[in-house]
Amino acid sequence: MTPNTAYTPYHPRWHRTRVSTYWWLARGSYFLFILRELSSLAVAWFVVYLLMLISAVSTGNDAYQQFLHWSGTPFALFMNIGSFVFVVLHAVTWFNLAPQAMVVKVGSKRVPGFLIAGSNYAGWVLVSIAIVAILFIQW
């Protein structure tokens, strides 16, 4: 948008083919792109779900048990199964793109992409193990 562009009565008309609203259905790679972009909805849902859990834990054991019961209802399962798929899609596409986003150099040599992606995947595994450990291991 260029709001300050001067208006002229005989402004040239550029030839622009109209892109269909459903352009992302035209190809598999476009569709995957839009699925990846839509993963942000799953990320937002996760935050809502997490805050509901935190709120229940703050309220007391009854509220926590109620939350656990609710998490087994069809609506919650539907949201969480779908969100899980999208959150994994987000993680995989994010880590795979990391080499393009991060240019790490050792001396004058660029660290190869697979090492950067690999270290991201390693971080993912470590964080996942840490979450399980925090929740389950008896110290």
Partner: peptide
């Protein structure tokens, strides 16, 4: 999100 969510959602959304 990529680091924390998959495992947390797997546990609280599916496994439990």
């Amino acid at each position: 999100a990529a680091l924390v969510m998959p495992m947390t959602l797997f546990l609280f959304g599916l496994a439990f």
